[in-house]
Amino acid sequence: MGNTLSRVGSNIHIENAAHLPGDVKATLIEQKEETLNALEHDEQARAAGLLIGIPGTLYLWSVSYSSTAYMEKVGGVWTAYRESYIPNKSTANSFKVISEGNTFEYVFSQYKKYIDYVNEKRGEK
């Protein structure tokens, strides 16, 4: 039996909260703002059509059969980038940084602009 977190206004709703260990509850209370921010980021990513790789940390969008665009937070820095692959090869043959910065909002806005640009080129918007 798992637990699901969701944001309800300025509160965190925990499905099956009675089964959550006390130390995990204490950590959630201690890190409430960070958790609420991560849940909000996930909602924004979902609304933009992104896949959530790691909640609050990694988002993905399939550009094409051989390219994927990522947005991730590493060491407090958000980076959006695109990798392209040759079919049947495990390493990227092309890498492009879309945006990099300290705030989710800035990098996410640049990431969405890239998605809109690609969709426009495809004739999807």
Rank of each mutant, 00 (worst) to 15 (best):
42 D>M: 10
53 G>N: 06
89 K>A: 06
58 L>F: 10
34 E>C: 03
57 T>H: 10
47 A>M: 10
54 I>Y: 14
81 Y>A: 01
91 T>M: 12
88 N>T: 14
45 A>R: 02
56 G>Q: 04
58 L>G: 01
75 G>Q: 05
37 N>F: 13
48 A>K: 13
60 L>K: 11
86 I>P: 03
61 W>F: 13
35 T>K: 07
23 D>E: 07
42 D>H: 12
18 A>N: 07
79 T>R: 12
22 G>H: 15
61 W>R: 08
71 M>T: 05
77 V>M: 04
56 G>Y: 07
19 H>I: 03
65 Y>W: 12
26 A>Y: 07
30 E>G: 13
52 I>C: 08
22 G>C: 10
85 Y>I: 05
91 T>G: 08
34 E>S: 06
93 N>R: 05
60 L>C: 03
43 E>S: 12
53 G>V: 05
41 H>S: 03
26 A>L: 13
71 M>D: 00
44 Q>G: 08
80 A>Y: 08
51 L>V: 14
50 L>N: 06
56 G>D: 01
34 E>Q: 08
47 A>L: 13
62 S>M: 09
94 S>G: 12
52 I>A: 06
98 I>V: 12
39 L>S: 02
74 V>W: 08
74 V>G: 02
63 V>D: 02
89 K>D: 00
62 S>Q: 11
54 I>F: 14
33 E>C: 09
100 E>P: 03
64 S>E: 11
59 Y>N: 02
29 I>Q: 07
48 A>E: 12
36 L>P: 00
90 S>L: 09
39 L>I: 09
46 R>F: 05
84 S>F: 11
97 V>C: 05
50 L>H: 11
70 Y>A: 04
75 G>Y: 07
38 A>N: 06
75 G>P: 01
92 A>D: 01
70 Y>R: 08
40 E>F: 14
25 K>M: 08
79 T>N: 03
19 H>E: 00
27 T>H: 14
18 A>M: 06
71 M>H: 04
25 K>A: 02
71 M>R: 01
73 K>Q: 01
33 E>V: 15
41 H>T: 00
54 I>M: 13
61 W>G: 00
19 H>K: 11
50 L>T: 11
39 L>E: 00
75 G>A: 02
81 Y>T: 02
49 G>C: 07
75 G>S: 04
65 Y>E: 09
99 S>M: 05
99 S>P: 03
99 S>H: 05
33 E>R: 14
35 T>A: 03
80 A>E: 00
82 R>P: 00
82 R>I: 10
66 S>Y: 13
74 V>E: 11
36 L>M: 07
28 L>S: 05
54 I>L: 14
68 T>M: 08
72 E>Q: 14
79 T>H: 07
21 P>S: 08
36 L>Y: 04
88 N>G: 09
73 K>P: 00
44 Q>W: 13
89 K>R: 12
76 G>S: 02
48 A>N: 12
19 H>L: 05
88 N>Y: 14
49 G>P: 07
20 L>R: 03
87 P>N: 14
89 K>C: 09
44 Q>E: 06
